[in-house]
């Protein structure tokens, strides 16, 4: 309980720092919101008036205070590009991204663990070569390239799955999954590759330990030894790596969602960046960083459940 309390107070501090970094990042870099709204050829007096109205002449600390205050009250400002309240825009997109993130995690884990286990059990044989090469190839090609290969294969040639768009799972679950499948695979491939490598090395380490020899010599079946006794102890570091790699995943959704025209948070972030829509950039960057941090907390808690030897006190 003390641990959870400590974690939560640290979380609040980190959240505060994330908001400061997000704000400073968009403020110290060149770029004038007033010019972005009115255009470069607008009258200097109108610009000055708008800057005054938006409070852009106030000291940075005051501006930050106003931004974070509004944020906490649910007023996330208005997007310059979409001319809509940002809170509303984000609310619609979070569900879409949630679908592909969960789906890609499932795909990555369900492929990586068997591949990694096979690589370790059949070390230095052809099965290991296949598993290790798949993993190396997975981390060596950009996700958008995989995405294009998937579009070509499953959408253009085989005509099985749509290559763009998003359908809400609340409207039509089957159609929603069909739309999310290709982006989720493209997103999950590099995660899968990293996890396969981690599973293999963790399994190799566990399999060389004494208790595994004991299990084998007392006559347990190989399947039981590998999957029950070894895998259970090898899985904890794999989950840690999965947590670290989530950061990569949350970066990749920007590229993958744009490629598939999948209107989630990543797509929204891209639109914001492309149009230098500062208020929307601030909001999306803040949301992605927050979700990433929260998911790291979840990973730590899962880790504790999986490995009771870990104590955080």
């Amino acid at each position: 309980m003390t641990y959870l309390f400590k974690r939560l107070s640290l979380l609040l501090l980190t959240l505060l720092l994330i908001s400061v970094v997000t704000f400073v990042l968009t403020k110290i870099l060149p770029g004038d919101v007033a010019i972005m709204i009115l255009g470069t050829r607008s009258h200097p007096e109108t610009l000055t008036a708008l800057r005054q109205e938006l409070g852009l002449n106030d000291p940075l600390v005051v501006q930050y205070g106003r931004w974070i205050g509004d944020l906490l009250q649910g007023d996330w400002g208005t997007s310059l590009r979409f001319k809509e309240p940002i809170a509303k825009l984000l609310g619609q997109k979070i569900l879409a991204s949630g679908v592909i993130v969960v789906l890609s995690l499932l795909i990555a884990l369900s492929l990586a663990i068997p591949l990694g286990v096979v690589g370790a059990v059949r070390q230095n044989r052809w099965q290991d070569t296949v598993s290790s090469s798949t993993a190396l190839l997975g981390i060596s090609l950009p996700d958008f390239f995989w995405g294009m290969v998937l579009i070509l294969l499953f959408s253009r040639w085989l005509g099985l799955l749509p290559s763009s768009g998003f359908v809400s799972p609340l409207e039509n679950l089957w159609l929603s999954i069909k739309h999310a499948l290709l982006p989720a695979i493209a997103l999950g491939l590099s995660l899968m590759a990293h996890l396969t490598r981690m599973t293999r090395s963790a399994m190799l380490e566990v399999l060389s330990q004494d208790y595994i020899r004991v299990s084998r010599s007392k006559g347990l079946g190989e399947r039981m030894v590998v999957y029950k006794h070894a895998l259970r102890n090898a899985i904890a570091p794999v989950i840690t790596v999965a947590g670290l790699q989530l950061g990569y995943l949350f970066g990749s959704i920007i590229v993958v969602e744009s490629l598939f025209n999948y209107t989630g948070v990543g797509w929204l972030t891209y639109q914001a960046l492309l149009n230098r829509d500062i208020p929307l950039i601030q909001a999306t960057v803040f949301v992605i960083a927050t979700v990433f941090m929260l998911s790291n907390l979840v990973v730590d808690l899962v880790y504790k459940v999986l490995d009771p030897r870990i104590s955080f006190e």
Binding site: L13, T14, L17, I18, V20, V21, L25, T26, L29, P30, G31, G247, Y248, L249, F250, G251, S252, I254, V255, T269, Y270, L273, L274, R276, I281, V285, I288, A289, T290, F292, M293
Partner: peptide, 24 residues
């Protein structure tokens, strides 16, 4: 390290994309 940890809360690609977009 507090500063570094905060920066680590931002996915690398997100950070790189934002900086690049804002700088031009």
């Amino acid at each position: 390290m507090r500063l570094v940890d905060t920066l680590l809360s931002f996915p690398v690609l997100l950070l790189a994309l934002s900086i690049s977009a804002i700088l031009g």
